[in-house]
């Protein structure tokens, strides 16, 4: 039965991709990209990749669709027909790369084989020893936050770089001070939505915190929690207007928090260096090694969650602030 569902999901992915190529209405393309993210997230669930499904759903289906829609609100909806000369050049190149890729798959270990090199070399140690060495059930979080913690540090820096980049490009310092702007939200007539949102937002924030601290035992962790936390603010900003949202979250505070998250992550590592161990070695935090790993992973996930949440808020507010110039509204 799982094979049928896999094939069904993959064929839906292919159909969505082909539809995206042909549709010229960019709003529809943004929505189909959201559907593409959703299907690939469900495919990840079928492939036992629960944490990745979590992240892909919240990032692929949620954040990237919202960002694309915010951009389309500024740049306009319809796309021009693509030029024949470009497609004639692109098709052979794409077919050539595709042929090389297919050629590459001929010697691959077959799908789901338990004896392929991937399953035998590095992975068994994580699965067998992580219970004793780190003591948390979710092996993905233990690899993410302890064995390969420096990769995750690089990742937090990538998100921080994106936040700095979007700020450097779109930051507007000429926005009127918050107090003076009357709150004229565009969604006044959607009273139903505002009531429901008012009920939902605390629940979403609570769910975000649950995901943050549940990362060791089930799917979840810093990234997913950060994105969920930020999506609560997006909902508030969309329904109550940007000025109300800017009253809630002050832009300089958000930037300081984003920097703070990265610094929390960095100091967790540097503390290990100060006492002679290597960077990001958690055995410094307490004499019992397993307990030390728990503490280390907790700090790491806190730093990651804080940075991801605040950078997502920075990116969304900077984009929406930019469209305020266009519409001069809310």
């Amino acid at each position: 039965m799982e094979l049928i569902i896999n094939m069904g999901l993959l064929s839906m992915l292919a159909m969505t991709a082909i539809a995206i190529v042909r549709i010229k209405d960019l709003f529809a393309v943004a929505m189909l990209a959201g559907i593409y993210g959703l299907i690939s997230a469900s495919f990840f669930v079928m492939m036992d990749a629960v944490d990745v499904a979590f992240t892909e759903a919240s990032v692929g289906a949620g954040i990237s669709t919202l960002l694309m829609l915010t951009t389309l609100a500024i740049t306009g909806r319809f796309e021009k027909a693509d030029k024949k000369s470009r497609t004639r050049f692109a098709l052979p190149l794409v077919l050539l790369t595709g042929a090389l890729l297919i050629y590459g798959t001929l010697d691959m270990p077959s799908f789901g084989a338990a004896d392929s090199p991937v399953q035998e070399h590095v992975a068994p140690r994580y699965l067998n020893d992580s219970a004793q060495e780190i003591g948390i059930p979710n092996v993905v979080t233990s690899v993410l936050a302890s064995y390969r913690a420096f990769d995750t540090f690089g990742e937090v820096i990538v998100i921080f770089t994106a936040g700095v980049g979007v700020l450097a490009l779109l930051m507007r310092t000429d926005l009127p001070p918050i107090s003076s702007v009357k709150n004229t939200a565009s969604m006044e007539e959607h009273m139903v939505l505002r009531i429901v949102a008012k009920m939902l937002i605390p629940l979403i924030l609570l769910f975000g915190l649950y995901v943050q601290f549940h990362g060791e035992y089930g799917p979840g962790g810093g990234f997913q929690a950060g994105v969920i936390f930020a999506s609560a603010f997006f909902l508030y900003a969309m329904l109550y207007g940007m000025n109300a949202a800017r009253k809630v979250i002050d832009s300089s505070l958000v930037q300081v928090l984003a920097a703070l998250g990265v610094l929390i992550y960095g100091t967790t590592g540097v503390v290990a260096m100060l006492s002679g161990k290597n960077f990001l070695d958690y055995s410094v935090f307490s004499e019992d090694p397993v307990h030390a790993q728990h503490l280390g992973i907790l700090f790491i996930e806190l730093g990651v969650g804080l940075t991801v949440a605040t950078v997502m808020i920075i990116i969304f507010f900077t984009f929406s602030g930019r469209s305020q110039v266009e519409g001069e509204r809310d």
Partner: peptide, 20 residues
């Protein structure tokens, strides 16, 4: 509970926007 709360709301908002 979440789905029962949000899906009718989304439907409502959608119809309002369409009529609007």
């Amino acid at each position: 509970l979440f789905v029962l709360l949000t899906s009718p709301t989304a439907g409502h908002a959608l119809v309002m926007a369409a009529l609007h």
